[in-house]
Design a protein around this nucleic acid. Sequence first.
DNA 1: TAGAGTAGAGAACGACCGTTCTCCAGTGCA
DNA 2: TGCACTGGAGAACGGTCGTTCTCTACTCTA
Lengths: 181, 181
Amino acid sequence: MEPVDISGGSDHETRVLDAAERLFYSRGIQAVGMDELRTAAGVSLKRLYQSFPSKEALVAAYLDRRDERWLSSLRTFVGDGGVLEVFAWLVQWFGSEDFRGCAFLNAFGELGDQVVRPVRRHKDRLHAYLRELAVREGAPDPDLRADQLLILVDGATVTAMLGRPNAAGAALRLALPDVRV
Amino acid sequence: MEPVDISGGSDHETRVLDAAERLFYSRGIQAVGMDELRTAAGVSLKRLYQSFPSKEALVAAYLDRRDERWLSSLRTFVGDGGVLEVFAWLVQWFGSEDFRGCAFLNAFGELGDQVVRPVRRHKDRLHAYLRELAVREGAPDPDLRADQLLILVDGATVTAMLGRPNAAGAALRLALPDVRV
DNA sequence: TAGAGTAGAGAACGACCGTTCTCCAGTGCA
DNA sequence: TGCACTGGAGAACGGTCGTTCTCTACTCTA
């Protein structure tokens, strides 16, 4: 009898998803073949296709898992804080070695409509979280405030991706003009 | 004797670049093959490769020409105006039928380092123009102001690409908080 | 009219990629 | 020990793509 898998995904799936996230994010989805992925994950091609029946399915799983982890990392960091902490989190993300912009925007640029569903889902979830923060800070129009925060987060992310330093700082000053930096 | 070509590029080149811009922008670069491009441009494969020795060269030419035209469309629209006009231009761009986000960010998401040079060049030129506007409006720190305007323009663009209406309006209110919309 | 040169259409080539298939070594059970 | 089964490694297949090559029709000149 197989050991029970509490997490819902097998060990192999986890290894595949780890490799997929690392390779897809750093080099792009189309630039990474299933064979290279198999090698990186240390899994046979047969197993790979047992876990994910197609590359498209693997890409969807990659994006869904990244959405989950990215947002929960942000939520954890911000905790009971607010907008200021969001941008502090961005600063450390932008400074991380393997930062390459937003995985979802990059995937959309590559694959277009093929991935529009997970990409929209991610941005909608981020928008909902930012709206929570807007409500928490007592914004008069939380929907507008969330729209604006999303624009600032995405704008800072793509700007930072192209090497402009201090993108998060510049965005923060738009979000909170009265904060002394 | 051939007719003299004042523009510096042959008629064929123009046709190829027109087709390239339409197809690359609407469907992505990797999704469009040289053969389909040839058909769309009504040019023989031989001629295509005489004008552009490789797809990579064609992509670079496509991005350079788009940079030129995009920026000059913006400049013309804004004229002697300022930031308000920039966002008015964005509104009509976002509303255009074939709008699909920023061609340069999409290309970078697809091809990464392969196109980083033209992408950076475009964003640098846009940044320089926004800095001009910042100086014109008497911003105390034109560099910071340009950073912020770039974040707003790019943020609004990617947000609009994913179907969020009123991205330009929300961004405008961050750029010019005192404007009554 | 004969012949040389040009350009277009598309076949051909080599490489790669997603996916499937084959073969074989290893394992657990009778 | 023999045997059915599993899983892994990687060969194979079909398709696509960027690029080059071939062949043919046409044109311009002498």
